Amino acid sequence: MTTMTQPAPAWLRDLAASRAHYEETFGWPVAVQVGQRQLAVALGQVLDAITMPADLADQVNQQLGIAMLAGPVIAHEDSGRWTFLTQAATMMRGDIVEGLADHEVRHAGAGSYTVVPTESSDGGCRWITEPRPHQMLPSAYAVIATARRLCAAAAAANAA
């Protein structure tokens, strides 16, 4: 009895190639989510993610750039949110985004996943700032501290 096999569909080959690129170039633990036709990176060991509304995130990204602490940033088109990929916050005590809930700043760490863009991403997400080989990711604390400072400055300006 002969078995006939079909080649994998093009979208699956593209996802597999993108996964290999992320793993080989950056060392990120990336998984193919076949049902959603997307890639997701596991958080908590190699990297973490800080997500916030795009308007705040744009300001944070600019400030991190000035301080030479900028790293990869993903825009999620469907929700108006950006995600900063950071070093894993392994020594974290408590909730590092405490006090920023009103500003919708979220930390996704161990046990979470975040979607990463691929060349065939159909509007789900895209890179604002692409990762670079051998780039040191910013500290999660630097991203949060910058967001805190900007939120505090905005609150002070509104109170004046």
Rank of each mutant, 00 (worst) to 15 (best):
R81F: 09
A8D: 05
L39P: 01
C125L: 08
T51N: 14
V116K: 02
Q63N: 14
W127R: 11
F26E: 00
P72A: 14
Y141G: 06
D14Y: 00
I50Q: 08
S18I: 04
E24R: 11
T118M: 06
A20F: 01
G44A: 09
T129S: 15
V115Y: 07
T83E: 00
Q38I: 03
Y141R: 07
V73N: 02
L137H: 00
T118G: 04
M68L: 13
A16K: 05
L137P: 01
A40N: 11
V34E: 05
V73R: 00
A89Q: 01
T114K: 01
V105G: 01
A57K: 03
V97R: 03
E119Q: 15
T83C: 00
P133Q: 15
I66P: 06
T5H: 05
A8C: 01
E119D: 15
V105S: 08
T25Y: 03
V105Q: 06
E119A: 14
R148Y: 13
L47K: 02
S18N: 04
R106N: 10
D14M: 03
M91W: 09
R37M: 09
V115R: 08
R37L: 07
P72V: 07
P133M: 14
V41P: 02
R148M: 08
D14G: 02
W11E: 05
W28K: 04
T51P: 04
P72I: 10
R37I: 05
R81W: 01
E98H: 11
V116T: 02
A31Y: 07
T51M: 13
R93H: 12
G111L: 13
W82H: 03
T118L: 02
H103M: 06
S120K: 07
L64R: 01
P9I: 03
G71D: 04
A67R: 14
L64M: 12
P117I: 12
D14Q: 05
I74A: 02
R37P: 05
P9T: 03
G71K: 01
R149D: 10
Y141M: 12
I128C: 09
A89R: 08
A140V: 09
V41W: 00
T146W: 10
R93D: 05
V97D: 02
A8M: 06
Q6S: 03
R37S: 11
A142M: 12
D55S: 13
F84G: 01
D48A: 12
I74H: 07
G65I: 15
C125V: 12
F84R: 01
H103L: 12
I74N: 02
